[in-house]
Amino acid sequence: MRRDDEHDQDVYGTFGVRAGVVVLGLEQFADAPRADGVPVVVVAWEPPAGGDERLARILTELM
């Protein structure tokens, strides 16, 4: 588990957002940070459990 330390805050800002953002879901949400010069990685996300919401919740509870 990594935490925001003081070094990161100096370099990347209080919230460390300038260090990079990962986008899961709507790809449009990558546009604004990218346009601001922030490195963005978009995850090619697909629903687990074949999109079965009920099964996905059960799996989450088991995690």
Partner: peptide
Amino acid sequence: DAPRTLAQALARQPETHLAVVSVPGPF
């Protein structure tokens, strides 16, 4: 090529501090 999971995305961009999550509610 494209990362399929958060862990793969982080391996590519280890300095990341923030995830923007907009996948469907149940997930």
